[in-house]
């Protein structure tokens, strides 16, 4: 690979030019109104945090088992609705989620969080044990199975939960905003909190994979499943745990997103798409890739809304597509992807 073919070189130069243009344009806009730049940048970062939490579960399951869980978005959505129902029951419907009026105690948020994540993790586990386990290695069939499950979940959610999008209430003990001491910005605390949780999740997953025996088995399993089994390790147990954790992370994302943005019936498609894009950009199975992918998606999303010329903000989806094409043109397996 020492001599770069001219075609590849041309593609790289082109991409370099595009990136340079974007950088100059954003830089110009930032100099023009630094305050907006900082706030929108934070919007993008916090959004990226949420995307990372969701996508890390998706990529973990794929990396180990080669299962593309098309129901990942459905699990995200389910967790949001479970938590919302539970919170309403706990607070007797008193916990308005609104700014400054939250009456939810810390438990009124934590308990729904834990229960919803566990419930969704369990659903994921059952899904894996009942439907996916005996189809191991048949990637397409497994993907189709999870698509079927996502159709059923979407329809049942429609049948059983209310009509308008709602928010989970953040605990009232959380501050509403934090002051940044920069351009006088006070920024929503919960969004920062989501970013911190995302970083913590990332570090925990990293530590788990690099430092624990479980992680060692997972890494070995990614490279050579048969060998791991031959060594007498119960790979099925590892698979089941990985699926549980992956689904749990979808649930965690659902509760965080349900508090930060909203619990909505369209969430399944949206977050499946986001997870797909994040891992296509970052490379399936790679934690670092998921982080980079989430960052790229979150920032493009937030800045596209603001820095596209007025009247063209509705073209922002094309930016995401362009991002995808750009990455795939250079690296078909994503930035950190490795051949299976």
């Amino acid at each position: 690979m020492s001599a770069v073919p001219p075609r590849t070189l041309a593609v790289r130069v082109l991409i370099g030019l595009v990136l340079a243009f974007v950088a100059v344009y954003v830089g110009y806009k930032a100099a023009d109104d630094p305050r907006t730049f900082v706030v929108v940048g934070l919007n993008g970062l916090t959004l990226a945090g949420l995307y990372f939490v969701v996508a890390s579960g998706f990529t973990l399951i794929f990396g180990l088992m080669r299962v593309v869980n098309m129901a990942h978005g459905s699990l995200y959505m389910l967790a949001g609705f479970f938590a919302l129902e539970l919170q309403k029951n706990l607070t007797g419907g008193e916990a308005t989620s609104a700014f400054g009026t939250s009456k939810a105690g810390i438990g009124d948020w934590i308990i729904p969080l834990v229960v919803a994540c566990l419930a969704v993790g369990l659903i994921g586990l059952v899904m894996q044990q009942v439907f996916l386990r005996w189809n191991q290695g048949q990637e397409l069939r497994q993907a189709l199975i999870t698509i079927a499950i996502s159709i059923i979940i979407a329809d049942q959610v429609l049948a059983n939960f209310g009509g308008v999008a709602e928010n989970l209430a953040a605990p009232s003990s959380f501050p509403e905003t934090v002051s940044l001491r920069l351009y006088d910005i006070s920024y929503p605390f919960f969004r920062i909190f989501v970013l911190l949780v995302a970083i913590a999740v990332g570090l925990a997953l990293w530590a788990m994979i690099k430092r624990t025996r479980f992680g060692m088995i997972v890494r070995a399993g990614v490279d050579d499943r048969q060998m791991v089994s031959a060594l007498g390790i119960n790979i099925q147990l590892v698979f089941a745990s990985a699926f549980l954790i992956g689904a749990f992370l979808a649930g965690l994302g659902g509760v965080l997103g349900g508090t930060m943005i909203s619990v909505n019936k369209g969430n399944d498609t949206t977050y499946l798409l986001f997870s797909l894009i994040v891992v296509i950009i970052g490379g399936m199975g790679s934690l670092a890739g998921a982080a980079i992918g989430a960052l790229a998606l979150g920032l493009v999303d937030a800045f596209g809304d603001v820095y596209l010329p007025a009247g063209y903000t509705n073209y922002s989806v094309l930016l995401i597509f362009a991002l995808l094409v750009l990455v795939l043109a250079v690296r078909p397996l994503g930035l950190f992807g490795r051949p299976a």
Binding site: R66, V68, L140, L273, V279, I280, V325, L328, P332
Partner: peptide, 21 residues
């Protein structure tokens, strides 16, 4: 031209993302 270098389940994901976009 872009997606043809991806195979199997990867290709499925990329085309799904394309479809939704």
């Amino acid at each position: 031209a872009i997606a043809s270098r991806s195979y199997g389940i990867y290709f499925l994901m990329i085309t799904l993302a394309f479809g939704v976009i």
